[in-house]
Design a protein around this nucleic acid. Structure first.
Length: 670
DNA sequence: CAGTGAGCGAGCTTCCGCTTGACTT
């Protein structure tokens, strides 16, 4: 009897597909990539060890030929697959339908020594029909797409292994740089610098309670035709007013309050316009991480760990995806849940469809959603704790994505009291739509959702109360782990499978710390960022990845040759940049301490001011380095006792060894 | 004479992306 070996990436998927294909097929998983460039010196095959380029794993002097090895952890699975190939008549390479999956298929061919009798099988949905059809409609491997993946791999290797040593020589041993992590680090550094450079400006906000029966709050917009200043009117770098808006003094604000309390207001104009809000899209990895962060206070790593459990338990579809699209079966299932819960009118007559917005989205998988043709209600799953909470979020989000828009009326009232103009925006809901099931978690905005009375133009309303609050323009907020993921996704940096690990790399290198769920960059992070900005400006350009992706697309289409691209990128580009890079310690100014800089000496981060130096505690947040703290440090005193910042729980990665070098660096002189 | 410790030098670190379990804490 003839057998066909089908190789997919994920074991859970293998199990399911085995059930759909039945006897005659053996379905196994590769567990992701099975070959890679040598990662450490010990992995370099002996025959290349003496080559000048061996450390890179890529022959940069001969058409960028890579050295591929089977890493120790993958030897077992390769051996098992080899054994199965011997007894199979045919091999279907059913790895994911994206660039990486195509490459894995080709690596399988090479590692398993396949000469013929292999085909590429692809599918976007795991249903019996889709799988059986896919097994019938195979195709050859797309070698151009494999070339694009290989180019991506080589670029990341050359950049990472090319630039990291500059950091060892200039700052400290064991540090790292790369296309993705350095883009993330620079984004964090820019935000931290903006925070430190921010000069907040005081301004007054004056509000009045208006109306008898259903009082509402209106805000003073202007006086005698001159607009009152709001945060947007100030230059964040100087705190100076940059427009002709009016900034009240405390006295004027008080006078305004007295003035308002003494007379009624007239309705100058009313505007009532309908508005609507669409439901959120079904979850991708990135949006799941963001919402789980807001609603459940999970960090991205926790979200992925819990989602993995749900996936393995058959409760949800695959959790590493960049596509918000739902299969037909999922769309029907979601609509059925909505109709059962809220009636026939709960869903639009035409089902909603979703497509990825990101340019480099590969859409190899569906959105993250409850599995199956019929969604199990959360209370019938038997799940508890975090798994139940995350499943519930996924369930509601998926069903909500198929429900009606929220619709209502948005009312804008403009009022006046003498020369004082006030304004208020209110909203009423006519059709709650999807919000019956799912509401985005967001803070504040309560005034925006006030219900306003129906008042005609020219009407007079009493003022119940008025008050003035002194406000300060806020500094830009720090990223959370999840909001950094969103920012990276927006510029196409990183992939669903790597978002959580990018954060752990930054943490393990000592570039960031998570403090009260906020992602703060350390002084070491600022130093590395400053060094890269001057030595390797192209690497930290936010557009770098987008440009790379455009070239990779051309390679995949056959319009650009792999070698031509790599030569331009490396031999005529980065190789020169790296050779010319200055190898000396960077230093960054301390905005809160004039004349002071933070720099590195002997691999240790130090503060220097007027010839005196002191080592900086690793957990000191840059924002907290004030003149007082600096004086204490330089006097040899331990500054204010801060609660030990708990290191975020991060996955153990191959690169975990950096923690050792950091703790040795942390040691202070006796 | 054997054991200890300071000091020195050599060797290694490092990327991104695809998957799980096998490890510790």
């Amino acid at each position: 009897m003839s057998t066909t070996l089908v190789i997919v990436e994920s074991p859970s998927k293998a199990k399911k597909i085995q059930g759909y294909l039945g006897s005659g097929y053996t379905v196994r998983a590769s567990l992701g990539h099975i070959r890679d460039l040598p990662s450490t010196k010990a992995e370099i095959p002996e025959k290349y060890a003496s080559e000048a380029w061996a450390r890179l794993g890529v022959n940069v002097s001969d058409s960028f030929k890579p050295i591929y090895i089977v890493p120790a952890g993958k030897k077992k699975v390769v051996a098992e697959l080899r054994a199965l190939v011997k007894t199979a008549d045919r091999v279907l390479l059913a790895t994911d339908p994206d660039r990486e999956g195509e490459a894995i298929a080709w690596h399988l061919v090479a590692a398993l020594g396949l000469k013929s009798g292999f085909e590429r099988m692809t599918f976007h949905e795991i249903t019996k029909e889709a799988i059986q059809a896919a097994a019938q409609h195979t195709r050859p491997i797309d070698y151009a797409l494999v070339g694009a993946q290989e180019s991506r791999r080589i670029i990341d290797r050359l950049l990472g292994y090319g630039v990291s040593p500059l950091l060892w020589n200039s700052i400290s041993s064991g540090l790292s740089a790369g296309r993705v992590q350095s883009a993330a680090l620079v984004a964090l550094a820019h935000r931290e610098q903006a925070r430190m450079a921010h000069v907040s400006a005081p301004y007054w906000r004056v509000t009045a309670q208006i109306g008898d029966k259903k009082p509402f709050t209106a805000t003073v917009l202007g006086v005698s035709g001159q607009r009152l200043a709001t945060p947007k009117d100030f230059d964040p770098a100087t705190g100076q007013l940059k427009t002709d808006a009016l900034v009240l003094t405390a006295e004027q604000a008080g006078q305004l309050v007295t003035f308002l309390k003494a007379r009624p207001v007239t309705v100058l104009s009313t505007e009532c316009v309908p508005y609507s809000t669409k439901p959120p899209t079904p979850f991708t990895t990135s949006t799941l991480q963001q919402e789980a962060s807001k609603a459940l206070k999970f960090n991205p790593k926790q979200s992925m760990d819990v989602a993995q459990k749900l996936y393995e338990g058959g409760h949800i579809t695959y959790m590493r995806t960049d596509s918000p699209s739902l299969s037909d079966e999922a769309t029907s299932a979601a609509r059925a849940v909505a109709v059962a819960a809220f009636g026939l009118g709960a869903v639009p007559s035409v089902p909603r469809t979703y497509a990825a917005k990101a340019k480099n989205a590969q859409e190899a998988h569906e959105a993250i959603r409850p599995s199956g043709k019929v969604f199990k209600a959360p209370e019938t799953t038997g799940l508890t704790g975090d798994e139940r909470a995350l499943y519930d979020l996924i369930y509601r989000r998926t069903v909500a994505s198929q429900m009606l828009d929220l619709t209502g009326m948005k009312t804008t009232l403009i009022l006046k009291a003498g020369a004082v103009q006030l304004g208020v925006i209110g909203r009423t809901v006519t059709e709650p739509g999807f919000t019956q099931l799912y509401q985005d978690v967001q803070e504040g905005d309560s005034e925006e959702s006030q219900v306003l009375p129906d008042v005609p133009q020219g009407a007079t309303l009493p003022v119940k109360d008025a008050k003035a609050e002194e406000k300060k323009t806020p500094a830009p907020g720090r990223f959370t782990e999840a909001s950094l993921v969103r920012a990276l996704e927006k510029v196409g940096v990183g992939r669903p499978s790597t978002y959580a690990s990018i954060l752990s790399t930054l943490d393990h290198r000592g570039y960031t710390r998570v403090v009260k769920r906020q992602l703060t960059v350390t002084w070491l992070g600022l130093l590395v960022s400053a060094y890269l900005a001057q030595a390797c400006a192209d690497l930290v350009d936010v557009q770098f990845t987008a440009h790379m992706e455009a070239e990779l697309d051309q390679i995949a289409e056959g319009a650009l040759k792999r070698e031509a691209y790599l030569t331009r990128f490396w031999s005529e580009g980065f190789a020169r940049t790296i050779a010319q890079a200055p190898q000396r310690a960077p230093s960054v100014p301390v905005p809160r301490v004039p004349g002071a800089v933070v720099t590195v000496r002997g691999g240790e981060v130090i503060l220097a001011l007027e010839g005196r130096t002191a080592p900086l505690p690793v957990d000191l947040v840059p924002d907290d380095l004030t003149s007082e703290v600096a004086a204490d440090l330089l006097a040899g005193k331990v500054p204010l006792k801060r609660p030990a910042t708990k290191r975020s729980t991060t996955p153990r990665t191959k690169g975990d060894k950096a923690g050792v070098t950091r703790s040795s660096r942390k040691k202070t002189a006796p």
